[in-house]
Design a protein around this nucleic acid. Sequence first.
DNA 1: GGGTACATGTAATCAGTTACATGATTTA
DNA 2: TAAATCATGTAACTGATTACATGTACCC
Lengths: 204, 204
Amino acid sequence: MSTERLGPTSYLVLGLLAREGPSTPYELERHVGATLGNFWSFPHTLLYTEPARLVTLGLATERRETEGRRRRVFEITPAGTAALVAWLDRPSAAPTELRDPGLLQLFFADLASPEARLRLAREQLAIHQAKLAAYDQDERLERRPGRSLAGKRTFEHWRGETLAMGLLYESAAVAFWRRVVEGPAARLAADTDLIGVPDGSNVG
Amino acid sequence: MSTERLGPTSYLVLGLLAREGPSTPYELERHVGATLGNFWSFPHTLLYTEPARLVTLGLATERRETEGRRRRVFEITPAGTAALVAWLDRPSAAPTELRDPGLLQLFFADLASPEARLRLAREQLAIHQAKLAAYDQDERLERRPGRSLAGKRTFEHWRGETLAMGLLYESAAVAFWRRVVEGPAARLAADTDLIGVPDGSNVG
DNA sequence: GGGTACATGTAATCAGTTACATGATTTA
DNA sequence: TAAATCATGTAACTGATTACATGTACCC
């Protein structure tokens, strides 16, 4: 069996199907958007085509609604669960890909005008501040009392844990771009307290 | 002119050709590996095919050595420089892609055994600690006296600045995974001082 | 002079993206 | 009932990855 034709997207879908039960591509999209989608984009078309691929591999089944929107509902198979668990049992050693167009532009900023460089830094700072604020908002909603259903407890925890990394990254990015805005004179990544408390106080 | 058939890889090559002058794919590869390649991987084959594409677009020229390895040397054209500067003048708004297989596995760690989860966290911690140590080593070499040639000064600065973001990210990752290793009890991303001084003291 | 690491490429494939398109539900 | 938004998909394309392959220089 070609068990090694599976990529990150495959495991994303398998994992969501395992945790959330039978799902439509749209439901997958919603879940992704609320979690990993914050820092790892999965175009919606992927979440329509990937489950179909999993079906051909015997890792999921497809059922089509007969009424209304006639949506396709996918469900994980035992083989799918096995593949997922096997993947989880073998920690990935692949390095993080940090693909940031802004950083790429900064890398070449010496080839353009100082004004362009400053504009870049300011826009990037704004972008990351906005993202950071969105995380904070998210977290506040999350902590809202009366929302942690018993069964959802575990999921919410893992969700929060993973999002914490995204939040941490955005904090770092804000600190970084702020330094860039302040100019080359400021020493970079050489001070303590580069990253403050991510509680929103460093967003404005 | 199809000026919008250019992606990040195109600008990477254009930028390097602009800054370093005529280069072979292998030279491009070396430069990338020492800088952006630390957190944004560009497979070496890309650096052979992409320059060729730029040639067809009139943004670079190709010359082939006659002796020895008969390497292909690429040089940026005025049109190429123009495209590069135009890109730098229009700051990108595309969000950062943070594609981390380890985080993906953590996100689904509740579907496997607690042991698998702990193993994952430990391995990720080790990976990021090693990366952080490598950055430190790099920086130490960089600061070595008698190495900053006058003409190289500017480049070295931008290089260092961009690398600082990678270093900052690794610091955050180390702090993050350490918390994960310590268990769910520890509150995540809610304390001050999550990220220590990136001087190597937190690598061991 | 044989092995190893360095260096240079080609070709096929495929995951991911872009472009396009339409149906269903809600709201005003 | 028209407009807007939500939801659901297909198909073409292409940038990136994988697999393969070979030549050159260096070292022992």
